[in-house]
Amino acid sequence: MCLSAAFNSLKSSNLISWKATGKLQQTLEGCIELTGKALHSGKVSTVKIWPGFAGEGRYFEFQSKLIPASIDFVQESLLCTTLCKDGYKIRTVEHLLSALEAKGVDNCRIEIQSFDSKDPEVEVPIFDGSASAWVEAIEQVGRKEALDRCGNNAEKLAPYLNEPLHVSRDDSFLVAFPSRMVRITCGIDFPKVPAIGCQWFSSAALDDFYEKQIACSRTFCIYEEVERMRNAGLIKGGSLDNAIVCSASKGWLNPPLHFHDEPCRHKVLDLIGDLSLFARSGSQGFPVAHVVSFKGGHSLHADFVRRLSGII
């Protein structure tokens, strides 16, 4: 199928207007292959990212099942973003998708394998807890113009927000305002953990700034919550090598930080990955808007994308 039918699905509405970016859709020059341990399951998995056709976007292949990197397949889960289709689940996709969105890899097939061929669940490796491994791999293999199955290139479109939009859960909120460019303002607040405290960070996310100022920001956790999370079946693969850990009484247990506000920057990294799930047909997923998040998380991000998509 050529692109005309695919782009018919990108219809503007009162909330969103799809506009040309002046760029052509991109894919990878070659295949990326990385193997590592997962944060929550503790299991080892291998990810191969293959070049994709223009207009087909980003999608996962697991156990011969194709699962698009789309909000339509997001399942509620603790401390990560999970895609689910026909009983098959892919967990912790946010760091990989963040890197692909920010680096402009619009179309690709993401093949993921675990060492247990019968397990219907798999998790993307965590590496050092940031998106650096993915960014470095993308830079190493390079990008190229994507062609569709008819051999044609395709213009990259972006969703421009036409009116303010907000979602909230308890004391957390995410609000977006119309803007001529992508802007992100993110705040976190940990009053019982003085070493983190209240932090704010603002960025223009989808350019080289991401690679230098956001991608290397690692996931973090509170030391006093580790036992509770492990009892809940989470962070089985967590260690001081793949997260920065902060104690309420003792401060950071594995310094130095990459930035004084690294936790807040990591929240921006997650936000970009989660909002990339609005992408379709090789378009930009992150809305052209000023997005403001306070005490946000994966569930709140999913709520926002569903509102953006008109699902809720």
Score class of each variant (00 low, 15 high):
residue 125 P to H: 08
residue 222 I to D: 14
residue 103 K to D: 04
residue 36 G to L: 04
residue 121 E to H: 09
residue 287 P to E: 11
residue 101 E to M: 00
residue 231 N to I: 07
residue 29 E to Q: 10
residue 185 T to Y: 14
residue 104 G to N: 04
residue 157 L to E: 00
residue 273 G to A: 03
residue 312 I to T: 02
residue 10 L to A: 01
residue 259 F to P: 06
residue 167 V to C: 07
residue 154 A to Q: 01
residue 33 E to I: 05
residue 212 K to Y: 10
residue 126 I to Q: 01
residue 147 L to K: 12
residue 80 C to M: 12
residue 79 L to I: 06
residue 140 Q to V: 06
residue 169 R to Y: 08
residue 304 F to Y: 13
residue 312 I to M: 04
residue 77 S to D: 11
residue 87 G to F: 07
residue 106 D to G: 02
residue 44 V to W: 07
residue 297 G to Y: 03
residue 186 C to F: 13
residue 137 A to Y: 11
residue 153 N to Y: 06
residue 130 S to D: 12
residue 253 L to D: 11
residue 210 Y to M: 07
residue 129 G to T: 01
residue 38 A to W: 01
residue 97 L to F: 12
residue 82 T to S: 15
residue 6 A to S: 06
residue 212 K to M: 08
residue 135 V to R: 08
residue 275 L to N: 02
residue 155 E to V: 03
residue 45 S to L: 03
residue 183 R to A: 12
residue 145 E to T: 11
residue 16 I to W: 07
residue 142 G to L: 09
residue 72 D to R: 10
residue 78 L to V: 11
residue 131 A to E: 02
residue 295 K to E: 11
residue 218 R to W: 05
residue 26 Q to H: 00
residue 198 C to Y: 15
residue 230 R to C: 07
residue 279 A to I: 02
residue 203 S to R: 10
residue 62 F to W: 13
residue 89 K to H: 14
residue 101 E to V: 00
residue 144 K to P: 05
residue 260 H to G: 11
residue 219 T to M: 14
residue 278 F to L: 00
residue 39 L to I: 03
residue 13 S to F: 09
residue 75 Q to S: 15
residue 279 A to P: 04
residue 211 E to N: 15
residue 261 D to F: 02
residue 43 K to W: 00
residue 312 I to L: 05
residue 116 D to A: 06
residue 200 W to K: 14
residue 9 S to N: 04
residue 80 C to L: 10
residue 172 S to H: 03
residue 191 P to D: 09
residue 71 I to N: 03
residue 112 I to C: 14
residue 132 S to F: 07
residue 23 K to L: 08
residue 235 I to S: 13
residue 73 F to S: 08
residue 146 A to R: 04
residue 63 Q to M: 05
residue 127 F to T: 03
residue 141 V to T: 15
residue 299 S to F: 04
residue 222 I to H: 13
residue 205 A to Y: 11
residue 42 G to E: 04
residue 9 S to C: 03
residue 23 K to F: 06
residue 53 F to I: 08
residue 217 S to L: 14
residue 164 P to K: 05
residue 176 A to D: 14
residue 51 P to M: 13
residue 151 G to E: 04
residue 236 K to I: 07
residue 160 Y to G: 00
residue 298 H to Q: 07
